[in-house]
Each structure stands twice: as C-alpha cells, then as structure tokens.
Design a protein around this nucleic acid. Structure first.
Lengths: 234, 234
DNA sequence: GCGCCTATTTTGTGTAGACTTTAATTTAAT
DNA sequence: ATTAAATTAAAGTCTACACAAAATAGGCGC
C-alpha cells in the first residue's frame, strides 16, 4: 500500500479527532474508541492511530491509560511551550542591533541568600558578573549573574569583556536542568540607572537557575527594559 | 524479537545520544550518522532510531533535514514548556482556599483599543466582566475580561456571580487558540484597590487573547497579587 | 463485605520492509 | 557561466505483525 493521498495519515487523524473534540462531538471526559476500532474506521493500521493519539495526548488534548483507554481531557491544561531565544536573536528579530557591554566581573564568596538558593556551602566562591544588553543603544536587559566557581572552574580564566556570560556558559557547560521564574519587580537605583528608567518603575524580571547533573552552576537575574512583553502562542 | 531488556529502546537511544551531545563527544554542528547506520550500531531497526531522533529534534537538541541529515544544534534553544493551571488548582496547590467574587458584568460597545487588538468592527458589543480571585482571603488575581458577544452569544445569559468567566468559557467554548503575553505593569488606583497594594506598585500581568477558528472570543487582562512568581522547570 | 490474586483489555513499543517526500548534488542544456 | 533538469541520499511515514506492560475488572477465599 502506498502512503500518498489515498492513505490516511496520522496528521489526518489528528485533525479529525481535534475537530470532533472542538465541535463538542466528543465532549470532555468522553472515552473514545480504542485504537483497533479507530484503525478500522480510519482504515489504517493501529500504529498510525497510535501515533496520532499519542501526539494529541502530548499536546494536552487527551489522556491515555493502558486498559482504561483514551479520554478527552475536560480541563484543557494546555501547556504553553515557548522557546527561550538567545538575546541576540530576540533583538535582531525585533529589528534592532545587538550590543553587549560588561559592567563588572569579580570572584567573591556567595552571599547568604544565594548560598541558600543554590544550596551552596557557606562562603563558597562565586564569580559575580554584571552586564548590559542593548538594542541599538536602547537598554534591553540588565543581567546580574553569579557562577559557581567549583562547578565551572574555567570561569576563572574567562574574559567576559567581549562575550556575554550566557553565551560563554552555553559554549562551556552543556546545561541540563533549568528553573525559570518570571516576576514583576521594582527598579532599584542600580537597575533604574542601567535601564534608564525612573527608580521604582515596574520591571519584568526573569530568574534563571541552572544545574549540571545536580550541581548548581549559575543563578541569573535578568531585568528587562521598559515596556518589555513576553509573548507566546499556545 | 522481543522488546524486553535485551532490546534497545528508543529511550535508550535518546539517552545515549544526549549523553554524547552533553559530553562534547558530538559537538554542536556535527552531522551525525544517518538512521540506517545508527540502527546498525544500536542493533535495532531504523524505525526505533527515527523515533528517538525525532523526539530529540522536537525537544530542541537536533536539527533534521531530509537528504541533509541530522546535526547537533549549536544553541540549544530549549523550549520552556509550562502548563497554565486553572487558578483554583494553582491556589490549592499552594495550600490556599480558593474564593471567587464577581465585581461587575455588563454589555457595552468595545472600546477602540480592544477593537483594534481583536480586529473587531467599530462598536461591536462585548461583555465586560471584572472579578477577583482570592487565596484564603488574600487577593490573588484581579481579572479584567472582555468577551465578544457575537462569537459567544450564550454569554448574554451567563451568570458570572458564582462561576468565573474563565471556567465558564472553557466549558462553553472548549478548544481555542491562545496568545499569551506576560509583562510587568504598574498598579493603577483600581488594580491597587482590588489587590490591596499601594498605587504604582509593580504587578505581574498576563494578557490572554483567545480565538475560536479565527474568530476573536475574549481578551483577558490578569493582574496578579503581590509577590507573584511564575516558575517552570525546563 | 473485604482483601488478594488472576485474567483480560488497552495502550506501549519493537521488528521488518516498503514507498514517499524533500532537498542537496550532479549533470545536461542553453 | 548560468540555468534547468535528472539523480540520489536522507528523513518521513505507512503497513503488518508481535510481544510487553499497566491497570481495570472479575473471581476467589475468608
């Protein structure tokens, strides 16, 4: 059998199933026919049905359990899946020219709050790097970053005057686990100065903790410039 | 052939490939062997290799192109995939008790900025619903929502005094397209009042536009209470 | 009735093989 | 040299079948 237009593809099945869900034909909580039956109705193999339903489940439309079958999810806990672009790409996509500037870089013992946050031992050495990212001379992001020296010893020799610590890290440490937090914070004098804002202004802020196989690698606090909006399609 | 422990599963392959990428064994931009070769080295079928590599590509580690082959992505633009929980679930997960209160609900012509945002015709009627979500009497979120009446005519009969507009919508218009935006805004007098904050305080804000098959359904502006943090693992 | 064990159903995943589609590459024609 | 057409290598997907694993449902003993 060929797979050209006379064949039912897993994409066709996905579309059809989605349409039935959306139209209310298959309402929330409904148990849908098992793969074998669907394979017959779609006149294809169970393998193909399986792929379609598996992907729909990954996308949050269905719930599948062995023996229990496949059912339509009632509360569509859709997962927003947005990519975290590199700053340079993001700025260039918005039509700006990316420029980077190092503010400071120094080794120091981890402050208490950082030690607590990353489960470091008291007084463990960290590299504290502060830098700016500009979009055509407009401040785009102020980055305040700490890198755990024990986890990335090479950081002692790193030169952050030309390359940003994030770029350096992704080249050096193929990172594994990341915890991302977004919040609205108030610009203190330092942040306001770098981002060219009035003090006290709301600032969209991201915190990013990175581990390499259980070892804390870096904590970054990223303050975005005025009017920043993070958008995603779901 | 069986698939028990003597067989190589697609998960094994994913792990092995990931390990090689992380260890630098397969550096960024490297072209990896084609599926047939990998199938031989892993002693499994090409089907199994295909699934492993396909998923790794979806997860952002590899780039695959027909004829060109599979290569390691240099800047692993990992995609944060975080689920958007229902407010009730989120509050209860944090140990609070969810409480809902309607502030106002009235039909009105769409204001210009909204008409522009949703591509409505001038003066199209919308239902403007404002409400509060509390976590054990602490303000958790102030919701300012507009629902396009032409897209959801049933909204005229809806009673939002007990059920929140979001819950009502997911029951009524199940699966839709969503554009989500996050930003930091400044609490104006209204928002400050509802969230029990000083005026001018930074507020983590989400904007949510929902379409049903190209038709605009609703625009919601969600103002989160003091200290709100949105966290996700990547 | 209650708890435990077994049987059965349904999804999960593998093998083997074929055809399709895309696109890089090479070849031929202008 | 440049463009257009043919070649071909790689991923993409389907068929057909088999066995595995999980979890519900039913039956058994108490």
């Amino acid at each position: 059998m060929t797979q050209s237009s006379d064949t039912t593809s897993y994409k066709d099945i996905k579309q059809t199933v989605l349409r039935r869900i959306r139209s209310g034909d298959w309402p929330p909580d409904m148990l849908l026919p098992n793969e074998q039956e669907l394979a017959v109705t779609f006149s294809c193999t169970r393998t193909t049905v399986n792929r379609a339903l598996r992907e729909l489940a990954e996308e949050g439309f269905l719930e599948r359990r062995r023996k229990a079958g496949t059912r339509v999810l009632s509360a569509p806990q859709r997962q927003a899946r947005f990519s975290i672009p590199l700053i340079r790409d993001e700025i260039e996509a918005l039509g700006g020219t990316y420029r980077y500037a190092l503010v400071s870089s120094e080794a120091q013992p981890a402050p208490d709050w950082l030690a607590a946050r990353l489960a470091l031992s008291a007084g463990q050495q960290v590299q504290h790097v502060r830098c700016m990212h500009y979009s055509t001379n407009t401040p785009f992001q102020y980055e305040d970053r700490w890198i755990v020296i024990d986890s990335v010893p090479q950081v002692a020799q790193a030169d952050f005057s030309e390359i940003g610590p994030n770029d350096w890290l992704v080249q050096t440490v193929p990172f594994t686990n990341v915890e991302l937090t977004f919040l609205a914070s108030r610009a203190d004098a330092t942040v306001a100065g770098f981002l060219d804002l009035p003090e006290g202004e709301p600032v969209f802020t991201a915190e990013r903790i990175t581990w390499l196989q259980g070892q804390p690698v870096t904590f970054a606090k990223l303050y975005f410039g005025a009017g920043y909006r993070m958008t995603t399609q779901v």
